[in-house]
Nucleic acid binder design. Structure first.
Lengths: 143, 143
DNA sequence: TCAGTTGTAACCATAATGGTTACAATAAAA
DNA sequence: TTTTATTGTAACCATTATGGTTACAACTGA
């Protein structure tokens, strides 16, 4: 199963706010226009980013802004905010291996550390990239 | 979204065959007993592993065996066999960013390489572990 | 022929995703 | 104060994936 598009949408949102904030008020409608989806989808993701302390959303008057310095928001932070995993584990382990079988009894012992390492490798790579990188590259590309 | 339990079930299957093949005929019923699920689930996964050239399944007479030396079957091979991803991409990119928006036009350019690196970090870690590792560790644990 | 097994179709329930409509709550501007 | 724009959220919906189950034809060796 793929990681949901909420992640790339969230990164798109940050990029949009960063690039467009001088010229436009960043509403869910505005973002939905750039991302090409429904404003309610955007609002739900904005809520997740707000709950993670990454975004400030103003009710009534409207408009979203980024809550922290761009280099303090990593892809990992965004991923964690929008993609909630059962027990924080990337791998869904089959529920009840038969403990009467020597393999079933020990399969968790055999696999858990390795699965953790695999998940950690992915998350560590995610921590290498920040919204500041997107901002910088976006600017060099647009100039 | 988590990676499906087919992956840990498949690893469990390899371990089971390796440990139990001297004492038992490895049928889908036998495996289902150790994994604690339905034999049809096992047969479907065995088909995926067979299609990937990792397992030999005998029809009629029954029984599964491992098709290659254990150190030539990595976690990555198993993952690829049972977890099919759209376009082989771990991340589901939102479909149609608005190319009239400068951000929407460039978001793929900004993200694709980074997303690839993240996916690659996970897959490279998966390549570090083989069924042979499970076999070795299983034996030291059982002795 | 018989018994045991695989391969596969046809279902089912549940959950997640992405989308949509609707509307109350809010806050600023007129 | 009223109006306007916007958010927050509930309530749906269609589609898909997962994990499970029953059923049965096809196969193979005894």
């Amino acid at each position: 199963m793929q990681i949901s598009s909420r992640f790339t949408i969230a990164l798109h949102i940050f990029s949009c706010i960063d690039v467009c904030k001088k010229d436009y008020k960043i509403t869910s409608d505005f973002l939905a226009g750039s991302i090409n989806t429904n404003p309610v989808i955007i609002r739900k993701i904005l809520q997740q980013l707000k709950n993670a302390g990454l975004i400030i959303v103003k009710r009534g008057t409207g408009g979203a802004e980024i809550a922290k310095p761009l280099d303090e928001i990593s892809f990992y932070d965004v991923y964690k905010a929008v993609e909630s995993l059962e027990d924080d584990t990337l791998f869904h382990f089959h529920e009840n291996p038969n403990i009467l079988c020597p393999v079933g009894k020990n399969i968790h012992f055999l696999l858990d550390k390795k699965l953790q390492n695999i998940q950690k490798a992915m998350e560590d790579e995610m921590k290498k990239y920040t919204i500041a990188d997107l901002s910088k590259e976006s600017k060099t590309f647009l100039s």
